[in-house]
């Protein structure tokens, strides 16, 4: 476990990403070891989502290197990236569900892709079982035959989580999972992120603008017996393995623990501190 923890799952080395009118990421460097949770804060347009897309290879950096599972993906072509991307689960801001497919087809999509990639004839019979299992994880098993447009925003986000984790990826990227949702639904989504981390031991990178999301990830654990979240014991490793980052105008301006974030006197970083007492 110690050996695994030292392995870097995602690493940025002096990454700069430019768009025609703007520099989206400026010389960003960080490393996410296996089993760690990263909470990424930042104002709108600070480069958080671009960082996620760069990590996936959807956006190519102008300079620097991105490493996924120890492999430099910077110069890889779209086709060469697919095997690496298959090891990552992504939840897009709006869920990114295919609106012409049913929920079942959406969730089985990554599974089918993996089967196709392995061998066309190896279609295993337990496809539906795995889809149902993933939907049960987000408590939406009854929506199999529905289309995304028939679900609420929070439900679509939950289906997005089911689709992201149906292949059991070692790395999960969440792009603003709670954005635009009411506090109750937002907490449900974040509880699923905690559950995914604790039951599947996934490394998580969570882009958010809500301090509560980071607090929840850093201080709560999923209890499989009660099926609910409960405060994590100090020393359990959860708090220690949750690292906060703050982006500002494309640069990584803060990286540290929750306590270091709380103690920061930087005016910009301080804006992301929030209420600590949450249920």
């Amino acid at each position: 476990m110690a050996e695994r923890a030292s392995e870097s799952v995602l690493r940025f080395e002096q990454v700069t990403v430019c768009f025609p009118d703007v520099v989206a990421l400026k010389d960003v460097s960080f490393s996410v070891p296996a089993g760690e949770t990263r909470i990424v804060f930042g104002a709108a347009g600070s480069g958080k989502s671009v960082m996620v897309k760069t990590a996936l290879g959807l956006v190519k950096p102008e300079s620097g290197h991105v490493f996924l599972f120890q492999q430099d993906i910077t110069g890889l072509s779209e086709q060469e990236l697919f095997p690496t991307r298959a090891k990552i689960g992504v939840l897009f801001q709006e869920g990114g569900l295919f609106d012409s497919l049913t929920i079942q087809e959406n969730v089985e999509y990554p599974l089918l892709n993996q089967i196709k990639a392995a061998a066309a004839h190896e279609r295993n019979g337990n496809l539906e079982t795995r889809v149902r299992e993933a939907l049960r994880f987000v408590e939406l098993e009854h929506t199999l035959e529905k289309f995304p447009s028939e679900l609420s925003g929070g439900m679509r986000r939950r289906v997005g989580i089911a689709r992201a984790m149906v292949t059991d990826p070692p790395l999960m990227l969440y792009d603003s999972p709670s954005a635009g949702l009411d506090p109750i639904t937002a907490n449900t989504i974040m509880a699923l992120a905690v559950k995914a981390r604790d039951t599947r031991n996934t490394t998580s990178v969570i882009v958010t603008h809500r301090y509560q999301d980071g607090h929840l990830m850093a201080n709560f654990r999923y209890n499989p017996e009660s099926g609910a979240l409960e405060p994590a014991r100090r020393g359990s490793g959860i708090h220690e393995r949750t690292v906060f980052m703050v982006f500002g105008e494309g640069s990584l301006v803060f990286e540290g623990t929750q306590e270091e974030l709380e103690a920061s006197t930087d005016a910009y970083v301080s804006k992301f501190k929030g209420i600590k007492e949450l249920r």
Binding site: K53, E78, L97, P110
Partner: peptide, 14 residues
């Protein structure tokens, strides 16, 4: 515009 193309790429489809 609804990120379905990005999702498709992320899920391993060109």
């Amino acid at each position: 515009v609804t990120e379905q193309i990005d999702a498709m790429r992320a899920l391993g489809t060109d």
